[in-house]
Design a protein around this nucleic acid. Structure first.
Lengths: 224, 224
DNA sequence: TGTACATCAGTGAACGCGCGTTCACTGATGTAC
DNA sequence: TGTACATCAGTGAACGCGCGTTCACTGATGTAC
């Protein structure tokens, strides 16, 4: 009611309200509307990491982090679920890229699998809350429901299966169903890392030692 | 404003509103106030199973399931978090009891460990959404933070550690750190079951076969 | 046996909040002539 | 070079909803005398 005279800009600046971060974005040029889309995705990913629950990350908080208004989000995403879906897709791509990068250092399939396990754990420990959402959250689990091959692809599962196949073909691993071997490795590593994330504070041996142990149980025992 | 004449009971009965289930509870006798507490715990557990997210189970829904008003919940629990905590404690006790029951059928430590793994998986598959909340949810993870020994106890972890110790003492398993062996078994089984729960619909071999495989990798390889 | 009373086990209505989303709008940017 | 105009990239205010929780109360149950 009062305070109509001062410009909107001045008001936004002065009323810091709850806003620790509002970098006061500049409006994008004509063809650059997609820039905001990227900033929204990044801010959402950050907030998911900090807050650790998709439900509790509000579109308003995302907007505030970006420095835009909350309706602006709807210029780029039809609704909140779509935004979260897009973030998760990005994150799966990042995980996949990291696995590939770390595996490609090695030639030997067994080394490659160990490298993959360690890279997977590193990713999860770097973004524990995002990992929770990607791999433990109901919403995201359901998202990929129709699209299982896509999930396997994204999560790097096929990468592992193929490497196990190579190992068997090259005589480095005993013949076995490569999908089962890959699955039990994945489950063991995921189990480990998810326990550490959820029951944080539980005092465990260093996680990398545990990962080595899991790799040994899954691979060394299977060496040809 | 209108409709004041008809009794409250009649109103409740007729306005079925969204209420599929409102069993029209009878008020407890003088000393039996604790009865409602139990009913609230059970209704909450049911709803958690059905809905699969602690956030999305509302106190109002719990009250409706029980057939009482929502303020009644606050007669027995100071707030929603305490209610959820109490439910989860109950559930951990049930899991512990199930493990003990299934293990006690066998004498041999290796058999006992296999039985434990299968019982654990059965519990999780019977109450997938509760298992998610107990083992994958942030809120519950945090609840037990101060109380790690209690967690280990509740989840049956100590039971497993002791059985591994027995196995080693009896010469049925190779000498090793019993905690590490138990932990890697737990992680592998938890990893498996949590993948199946979250990524439901993913087409996998029967889970019991996978559990057997995991047991083999963790135990058979370790047999003395 | 009858009645006044304390208390126990609850209830209906409401408060205040934060959220996802919509609506009607604004004003800078580039384009046509 | 100047100006009218379309459009793109946003915005402020508000709606409606569901939630956890509180408040003032009610009425059945048992007890004292």
């Amino acid at each position: 009611v009062a305070d109509v005279g001062t410009t909107a800009r001045a008001k936004k600046q002065s009323s810091a309200s709850t806003g620790h971060q509002a970098p006061a974005r500049r409006r994008a040029r004509r063809g650059e509307g997609e820039l905001l889309r990227d900033e929204i995705l990044e801010a959402t990913a950050e907030l998911l990491d900090e807050i650790g629950s998709a439900d509790k990350v509000s579109t308003r908080a995302v907007a505030q982090r970006v420095g835009c208004s909350s309706p602006s989000i709807y210029l780029h995403f039809p609704d909140k679920v779509s935004l979260l879906y897009a973030v998760s897709e990005r994150q799966f791509e990042a995980l996949h890229a990291k696995l590939e990068e770390r595996m490609d250092v090695f030639e030997d399939p067994v080394d490659r699998l160990r490298a993959a396990a360690h890279a997977y754990v590193e990713f999860a420990m770097d973004h524990p809350e995002q990992y929770r959402i990607m791999m433990m959250d109901e919403a995201y689990g359901a998202m990929y429901q129709e699209d299982l091959d896509n999930l396997a692809q994204s999560v790097g599962f096929n990468l592992i299966v193929r490497t196990v196949e190579d190992g068997i073909a090259q005589g480095r691993l005993k013949p076995a169903d490569p999908t089962i071997v890959a699955l039990s490795m994945w489950a063991a590593v995921h189990g480990l890392v998810s326990l550490v994330i959820v029951k944080k504070g539980i005092n465990l041996p260093p996680i990398d030692d545990l990962v080595d142990l899991v790799c040994s149980q899954n691979l060394e025992g299977m060496k040809a």
